[in-house]
Design a protein around this nucleic acid. Structure first.
Lengths: 144, 144
DNA sequence: TATTGTTATACTCTATAACTATA
DNA sequence: TATAGTTATAGAGTATAACAATA
């Protein structure tokens, strides 16, 4: 009896994440956003940030690779980027009203799709699934 | 009230998958396997396959990018790769006993780590989480 | 002519390292 | 000199396209 009782978790999760990400692409396209751009808007929606490096770290990105994203979001009028008067090396980052609107719109559409996706689960399992995801995600943050 | 009731599912899943994959790396290293190599062994453990293209598709890989992986696994003695006598364009792929042993060993170590990871969940949520993952993964296959 | 596997090429994404400006 | 941000370069990973063998 060499066959495993269950598949590896990573093997289960990878296609799910791939499908979820693929479902987001057309929605983000409609809103004129890239995946990194959307990630930035969601992060800034939790509150303004005091440096680009901190923002990059919060979304698991390299600080150099979000720069073109920030340039674009700023040109679109979705974020503000000002040198900190107290230390002009640092950029203060914040969402604009327009940025919050486009983020809310995209996120609503994305989560509507996710709700359909989750609706395949029985109600009890669905709640437990979300609870488990949040719990495991919390623990992950502590390791970092 | 613009703030969402929950984070996006993809944003929850991505770091979890990243952590799970990172935890596999040292285990696979100890076994002299790459992530693609391990994926191939797991796929072939479900049964032999009649072509490399079919194998690639079953693990969401490009048919060209598993070729170096197959070369290496064959050199390690973990798989057999024979032209099909009925159509010599096609390669018949199968696990060797040695390949099954190394796959079982790596998989046991990986799943032991996953069990620890899952142990942070209450027993009920844990069972529901696994049930939900399997269910969602099944549905995903149908779309393809 | 069509298909499997293979090789070669090009492209995308990401990280590393060098540079500018502030401190 | 040290740090935030930026730009330029290089590297890894992947896909696309051309090729060889077989049908």
């Amino acid at each position: 009896m060499t066959s495993p009782p269950r598949p590896d978790l990573a093997a289960l999760l990878a296609p799910l994440l791939r499908d979820l990400a693929a479902a987001e692409v057309p929605i983000l396209d409609e809103h004129g956003l890239t995946m990194w751009g959307y990630s930035v808007l969601v992060a800034l929606d939790r509150g303004p940030m005091r440096s680009q490096a901190a923002l990059a770290e919060s979304i698991n990105a390299d600080k150099t690779r979000i720069i073109p994203t920030l340039d674009e979001l700023q040109a679109q009028g979705y974020i503000e980027r000002h040198p900190d008067p107290a230390d002009r090396r640092v950029r203060l980052l914040a969402l604009t009203d327009s940025g919050r609107r486009v983020k809310d719109s995209a996120q609503s559409a994305i989560q509507r799709g996710e709700e359909r996706w989750l609706s395949r689960l029985p109600a009890g399992d669905r709640a437990a699934f979300l609870r488990a995801l949040r719990r495991l995600a919390e623990d992950g943050e502590q390791n970092t």
